[in-house]
Design a protein around this nucleic acid. Sequence first.
DNA 1: CTGAGTGCAAACAGTTTGCATTACT
DNA 2: AGTAATGCAAACTGTTTGCACTCAG
Lengths: 150, 150
Amino acid sequence: MATADWALYTRRALERSGHRSSAPRAAVVDTLAELGCSVTAREIANRVEQRGRAVGLASVYRTLELLEQMGLVQRVDLGEGVARFEPAHGSGEHHHHLVCDSCGNVTAFEDADLERAIERLSGRVDFAIDAHDVTLRGECPACHATTSPS
Amino acid sequence: MATADWALYTRRALERSGHRSSAPRAAVVDTLAELGCSVTAREIANRVEQRGRAVGLASVYRTLELLEQMGLVQRVDLGEGVARFEPAHGSGEHHHHLVCDSCGNVTAFEDADLERAIERLSGRVDFAIDAHDVTLRGECPACHATTSPS
DNA sequence: CTGAGTGCAAACAGTTTGCATTACT
DNA sequence: AGTAATGCAAACTGTTTGCACTCAG
C-alpha cells in the first residue's frame, strides 16, 4: 500500500542523503504516512505521543522542513492560519482539497479536467508556472444535512 | 473607474447599514480601493500614514473584518503566512493569483476555461461548493530573466 | 569521540482582544 | 448624551531559533 511505501522510500532517501536515522525523525515519517492527507505539525506530535514515544514540536517542524526541501513532503495552506503537510507521492499523483466551512473537515479530490485547464492556462500566462493549488470551499454532506434538513 | 466606484459604494453600504462614518474607516476603504488587488493590513496602514492621516493596525483589521462580513472585501490567503485583502466586486468579476516564488510578486489573472472546469467539478463532488481559490506559483518574467539569462 | 539531531524555552510575526478614550450622530 | 469606533498595549497562535544535551555513526 502507498502509505507504507512512502514511509519506506522516505526513510531510505534520508539515509541516502547522509542524514542520521533518529527515532524522533522516523516517528514523524511513520506518523505522517499513517495520518496521510493534510495534517498539521501538532497533529503529528500528538499522534506520536499517543503511541508512547514523544517528539518535540520543534523537531516535527524541522523534520517536515527537511522533507519538504527534499521534495518528499508537500506543504499545504488551506487558509486556516495553520500549515498542513502531506506525503508527496512522486510526480504523478496530484490532488486538491475541499474544505468544509462549517466543521473544517478537509477532503481530497482529483480532477483531470481541472488539471488540463490549469495546464493550458499555465502556457498562456507570462509567469513560468511550476505549481498550483486549488481549494474548494463549501459545506460537507454531514453539515449540509444538519443545516438544511429537507 | 471601478476602484472609485467600489470605494463610493462601500462607504454608502456602511452608512446604509447604520455604521458611523469615521475618518479612519473611510481612510481604510479609500486606501484599499487605491492599492487594489491583494494587499496586507500593514500595507494599508502604512499607506494611510504616508498620506498624513494614521490608523491603528487594529482598526484596519476591524474594518476589513467588517467589510468581509458584508461581502465587500475578499480575504485572500496565498500561503505566505499573511492575510491579504481586496475589494470584492459584485458577483461577476472573478480572478485568481499568480505568485512569484522568488520575489513574492503577486499578479491577478482570470480565465473562463478554468472557471468552467471548476463549475463542472463543483457539481460532481459531494460538498455543496460556494467558493474556490486557485493559486499558481512560479517565476515572474522579471525574475525569470535574471535567473536564466538566455 | 564528534557533530547531527533533539528538546526546551525564548523569540517572533501576524492577528485578536480588553479597555479607557474619542468623536459621530 | 449616548455609544460606536478608535488606539494602544497585552494576549494569543503558529512557527522559528538559540543553546546545551544526547546519541548515532
